[in-house]
Nucleic acid binder design. Structure first.
Lengths: 110, 110
DNA sequence: TGAGGCTATGTCACATCTGACATATATTCC
DNA sequence: GGAATATATGTCAGATGTGACATAGCCTCA
């Protein structure tokens, strides 16, 4: 399992230097990362459905295009706070957020 | 509506100095606050069900008792990241988090 | 070709959150 | 009474996240 998942995390910039380092994540931490990736995905689809560019969403959020790009990509430097605010700003409701969390996103395409 | 809700936010330390200031919250921001309160509540009930003290949960989280107290109380200085990590550390699953988000918590008791 | 819109990625000064600590209150036991 | 345990609240130096900016890669249209 690990190699595939690790590749995905690294792709998202989760600075996973080594397998050992990867395994150092507490269960809560890796669950949180999964959750951030799911919600980043929610932001992207919600934003696109609303026909907003990253720049447009950034304006609503009082943030910047680059932050939005990072948050959708699941970048490690983005807080869950910002991701959730972005989802709301894109038009998502609590229900949508709950749904995105309930469904565990498939990890990588294989 | 406002007076009641505002009192609740202030009680939780959400530094809401004036109604004007309160109204300055963007919709996303106040939705996020609601969500934090809901999840803080989830942490508390999950922790109690697991028969953990705040100190015990703090250990699992590699955090401190005072942070746990603040996060359960919906303190304004606590990130959503920490709240969610705490929920997981207390034993909550993604489903539990999703449920807590789906149900909008009743605001104050009246 | 090139101008314009959208997205990705790196950097940085500044803002916010963090764990740790001190301390207060409440409750339960002896 | 007082010892032990649980929780609440304030503070602070240091860690982490932030918006802004620069810049690059893609497309599309003329």
């Amino acid at each position: 399992m690990d190699a595939k998942k690790r590749r995905m995390l690294e792709a998202a910039g989760w600075h996973v230097g080594s397998t050992a380092e990867f395994l150092d994540l507490t269960p809560e931490e890796s669950a949180l990362i999964d959750l951030k990736l799911s919600l980043g995905h929610l932001v992207r689809t919600t934003r696109q459905r609303a026909k907003l560019s990253q720049h447009g969403l950034a304006d609503r959020l009082h943030s910047s295009q680059s932050r939005v790009a990072k948050l959708e990509a699941g970048d490690a430097t983005v807080s869950l706070d910002l991701i959730v605010k972005a989802a709301f700003a894109a038009g998502a409701k609590r229900t949508d957020v709950a749904n995105a969390i309930r469904k565990k996103r498939r990890v990588a395409a294989g």
